[in-house]
């Protein structure tokens, strides 16, 4: 275990993964975008603005998933004080923030032509904004609290408390009347998106996940270099 988390060993694997993702990323990106923008049919009601969904939905999923992951890592980190987990969650946070913002912005651009408004204070949209604020808090604490141990402790607590918001986002459309539509793809049961639209959606999701992995590996590498500069042999 300790040998695996040796710095040069981690470096070796990061390089390998980055190269592998780089080799397939652009091909997949072109395939996914051409499916989303050209080959998929327009919607019967919205027409071509349905294509915003192919970015909006994966972005929202990633925003939620990375916060869940950060919260999970933070719980382990808070209890067992494993420094590596802290570095990982620190590297995930900016990605999650970016995709949460992307989901909000694309949602506004979609809302204007379909709903007739950019913004509505309904439960789904507001709770998504709160998620973005939790991301910001997490990042700012790590940046501006200079004492490493304190930053670690405070940001872990922020992530764990913010995790309470995650089920609220997920079920907001079922618990309350919202302008936002209910989920189309359910964990159990048939989805209400036609299969010709699901394929580009899942492709886009896969490509964006790869993109996240790429950014994450780069961020994680910088964090490790920072540790190395302090002349620590292992984490």
């Amino acid at each position: 275990m300790i040998k695996f988390f040796n710095n040069s060993n981690i470096f070796f694997w990061i390089e390998k993964f980055t190269n592998f993702i780089n080799s397939i990323f652009f091909v997949l990106l072109i395939v996914a975008i051409s499916f989303a923008l050209i080959f998929s049919p327009p919607d019967y009601l919205q027409g071509d603005s349905v294509r915003i969904m192919y970015v909006h939905v994966p972005a929202a999923w990633i925003g939620l998933a990375s916060f869940t992951l950060i919260a999970f890592l933070s719980i382990l980190n808070f209890i067992f004080k494993i420094k590596n987990l802290f570095l990982i969650s620190k590297s995930i946070a900016p990605i999650g923030l970016m995709f949460t913002c992307l989901a909000i912005v694309t949602g506004a651009l979609w809302g204007q032509p379909t709903w007739g408004t950019f913004w509505a204070w309904d439960a789904r949209i507001t709770s998504m904004l709160i998620l973005g604020i939790f991301y910001l808090l997490f990042i700012f604490v790590n940046k501006y609290v200079l004492d490493q141990h304190r930053a670690n402790k405070i940001s872990s607590l922020i992530a764990i408390l913010g995790a309470v918001n995650i089920p609220i986002i997920k079920y907001s459309v079922e618990w309350w009347n919202t302008l936002h539509q209910p989920a189309s793809i359910k964990i159990a049961g048939a989805s209400t998106i036609h299969s010709s639209m699901i394929v580009p959606l899942l492709l886009m999701f896969f490509v964006l996940i790869l993109y996240c992995a790429l950014i994450f590996l780069m961020k994680y590498k910088t964090e490790i270099i920072r540790i190395k500069k302090k002349n620590l042999k292992r984490l």
Partner: peptide
């Protein structure tokens, strides 16, 4: 007036 969209997405032919 705001329009509320439902969770169904499908191509026009369908």
């Amino acid at each position: 007036i705001l329009a509320k969209h439902d969770e169904n997405y499908m191509p026009p032919e369908l």
